[in-house]
Design a protein around this nucleic acid. Sequence first.
DNA 1: CGGTATCCTTTTAGATACTG
DNA 2: CAGTATCTAAAAGGATACCG
Lengths: 112, 112
Amino acid sequence: MKYDFDMKNLCPATFSFQVIGGKWHLPLMAILSENETIRYNDLKRRLDGITATTLTNALKELIAHGVVRREAFAEVPLRVEYSLTESGKELVPLIEAIVTWGGRHMPEIEPF
Amino acid sequence: MKYDFDMKNLCPATFSFQVIGGKWHLPLMAILSENETIRYNDLKRRLDGITATTLTNALKELIAHGVVRREAFAEVPLRVEYSLTESGKELVPLIEAIVTWGGRHMPEIEPF
DNA sequence: CGGTATCCTTTTAGATACTG
DNA sequence: CAGTATCTAAAAGGATACCG
């Protein structure tokens, strides 16, 4: 899906959809919503199968869209914590409503 | 994004997201929600830039997911009408809620 | 009118190796 | 620990031409 990063001139639908549009974005939001903060490698472990490259890219997109916050602590070993912003937290119940819809209507459809 | 079409064994989140996940699926749902029924070429004209191949594929996916209905009339010239199913109509306000969220939070973010 | 068939390009995700 | 760089693979979407 083509991304148009001149987001100031985007319609809200396009913007919203870019926020939740990646393969891992929704699972990522779900895990973040269950934790006040979570570290990079803990996130990676909970997203079974994701690679570091993909996780880093997904996080960068969520941060750029203002729904995730990154905090780095100058410790040894290095500690980086991720959490939802207020706007990210507001999005969670809206996503959940769509998931609930899916749960109600999934059984109606036929497999290909 | 990899599609797993054995949808009987899918989690609701994955299912829901597949329904609204294509580049044109959301615009398509929007136009369908504004019309009781609409014909193939009218749909194509309203989706500026879509090709017949892509429109047909998107419609097939929406139909397979149970949110769109296709009715063909044996007339000359041929007439085919598309409309939202009940489950499709239920989905519309949930999508709108996310778009509204986008409208509120889009201005907060910085362009890349 | 309402598509399909074939081929091609763009976009997105993953593998692997390596670094501050 | 928390990434980056480079390369490769796989999807999704599009162009063009043609059909019932």
